[in-house]
Design a protein around this nucleic acid. Structure first.
Length: 511
RNA sequence: GGUGGUAUCGUCUAGUGGCCCAGGACGCUGGCCUCUCACGCCGGAAACCGGGGUUCGACUCCCCGUACCACUACCA
């Protein structure tokens, strides 16, 4: 009885894909994969005024980066194309005509100015059964006049004819049945002759029907127009094959009120776009998760948990696990405030659990960016160094800050650590330490540690002071991995050289 | 203003009438570990919007109020 699952993600190419849109795409994808269905990418470019060059390419690249696969679309092809609405004019024209002929819609000549005037004149003005009798349309004008106006090239729109006082029921998989009285839905514009294009509402219904979409999974902002869509399916006589509706809760601002917007990212300092976006008109650059050093799996995982939960305590999910566990029953009805700190934590988790060698590959370009020739170091050396520091980073970009000492000897030493750990007698102690290290044959971490610590103990030196001064000369500051692990990896010569440089360059802070 | 939706720790959330004097996670915080910074481990503070019902029993069901969100374009 159930038809094949076919879902669509239908963005408008009016700018970069917003993170909320990404979440919608993700849920569509998860549901499609879970049910062995198809994921369609449809470009809704029915507003010629808002077209932005590059936006469509951006959408494709972003979805690809995140691993949200598309089965049918402009790039992928498919049997239900074209997948770009601006290329479907002929189709829409045919269905507009059908509606007109069936008396389900009518032609209206009211100009935007006339409508504005009416809205000012009448409180809560709405183009509907109560008001259309006083407007300029094919219901009030004689047929000859209508024909004359059209022939004269007068711009017009086609509006749906809504029967008042009908109970319209929208069945939503997350919210249950929502009932609205048709008297509050207006005679929406379905088609505008000015650009020979339908509006979203008409195009959406026609395309979903023709593309045999089984589930319309979209943001909650569409819920208020869902009754109109139901009425459109009825007007076309497609009620029986109408798709199942699912309205996802919105992504909200972290602070304050309202939907998450581009501005919030700028204001609060986190990306609201998956990829960096260069606005072709304003030249503005908006930061992206990818460029910020996020792993796509972490972004996906984080987004999935915004509005959905597994019903268990598990929080880390691979895409495959999400596909397996996802369900609308466990989707929240409530909008979710976007919490950047939690997103950061997810990335940290993914970085920590990442294979050291894989992380090293990601890090190599960063090395080059900082003027380090990666070929100077063996893969093993790079791999082991990132392995040692990965527990203290949240982003790919943090690797360099934490691991640079493995590749470049410190030239500056942290003043606050000098103050705390570099005393008058420290240089002498460090000279003695060099002698001790020179005597170590096997620099393996545990062995070197035993010898050095034994020396500290036998000479009744202060463990914290000696070790931190040692660390200061090698790392440049008092932080980082276990000292003897560092020493093992860098080798005896390099360690001794660094201690010598430290003795020469570090001057005690005199107060 | 109108219509619709939603309402559990600061945030994401579990909870589908008794298992809840409400569980997990992020963040915050005390401690342990320790040569440092992290990680890790052990602890802590922190919530059922208000009022009426229904019921032997409500975080859970109903109603009212309140708050918040969305929509209210020839944009999507």
């Amino acid at each position: 009885m159930d038809k094949k699952v076919r879902v669509r993600f239908a963005p408008s190419p009016t700018g970069p894909l917003h993170i909320g849109g990404v979440r919608t795409a993700l849920f569509n994808y998860l549901f499609a994969r879970q049910n062995g269905g198809s994921m369609i990418l449809r470009i809704e470019d029915t507003d010629s005024n808002r077209f932005v060059p590059g936006a469509e390419e951006y959408i494709n690249e972003a979805l690809q980066w995140l691993g949200i696969g598309i089965d049918e679309g402009v790039c992928e092809g498919g049997n239900y194309g074209p997948y770009k609405q601006s290329e479907r004019r002929d189709i829409y024209r045919k269905y507009v005509k059908q509606l007109l002929e069936d008396g389900k819609a009518y032609i209206a000549f009211d100009t935007p100015e006339e409508l504005d005037a009416k809205r000012k004149e009448i409180a809560n003005f709405q183009y509907d059964a109560k008001t259309r009798g006083m407007m300029r349309n094919s219901l009030t004008l004689p047929k000859e006049e209508v024909d004359r106006l059209i022939a004269a090239g007068e711009k017009y729109v086609v509006r749906i004819l809504i029967e008042p006082d009908q109970e319209v029921k929208v069945n939503d998989l997350i919210r249950g049945e929502v009932t609205v009285n048709s008297s509050v839905v207006d005679d929406k514009v379905l088609y505008k002759s000015a650009d020979d294009l339908p509006t979203y509402h008409l195009a959406n219904i026609v395309d979903d029907h023709l593309m045999e979409v089984s589930h319309v999974i979209r943001g909650e902002e569409w819920l208020p127009s869902a009754p109109l869509h139901v009425l459109l399916y009825e007007a076309f006589g497609w009620k029986d094959s109408m798709p199942q509706f699912v309205h996802l809760p919105l992504l909200l601002k972290p602070d304050g009120k309202g939907k998450l917007s581009k501005r919030d990212g700028d204001r609060l300092g986190f990306p609201v776009f998956p990829l960096e976006w260069h606005d072709p008109v304003s030249g503005d650059i908006s930061s992206g998760y990818r460029e910020r050093g996020y792993l796509p799996q972490a972004v996906v995982n984080f987004l999935a948990l915004l509005g959905w939960n597994p019903g268990t305590d598990q929080e880390i999910f691979s895409m495959d696990e999400l596909i397996k566990e996802f369900s609308f029953e466990h989707c929240s009805k409530k909008g979710a405030k976007f919490d950047f700190e939690k997103g950061k934590w997810f990335n940290h988790e993914y970085l920590i659990n990442m294979d050291d060698a894989a992380l090293a590959e990601i890090f190599k370009p960063e090395l080059a960016k900082h003027g380090v020739d990666a070929s100077q170091f063996s893969d093993e050396y790079i791999t082991r160094s990132v392995g040692m520091i990965k527990s203290r980073i949240s982003f790919v970009g943090d690797i360099w800050d934490n691991a640079k000492f493995f590749f470049v000897a410190p030239t500056e030493y942290a003043p606050k650590d000098i103050k705390k750990r570099w005393k008058e007698d420290t240089p002498e102690t460090m000279r003695r330490l060099i002698e001790v290290i020179k005597g170590i044959d096997d620099m393996t971490s545990a062995n070197a540690e035993e010898i050095v610590l034994g020396w500290i103990k036998d000479n009744e030196l202060h463990m914290g002071n000696v070790m931190n001064a040692f660390r200061l000369t090698v790392v440049g500051e008092c932080k980082g991995p276990h000292m003897f692990d560092i020493a093992e990896l860098m080798g005896k010569d390099e360690i001794i050289a660094r201690i010598e440089r430290g003795i020469e360059n570090i001057k005690p802070v005199v107060e």
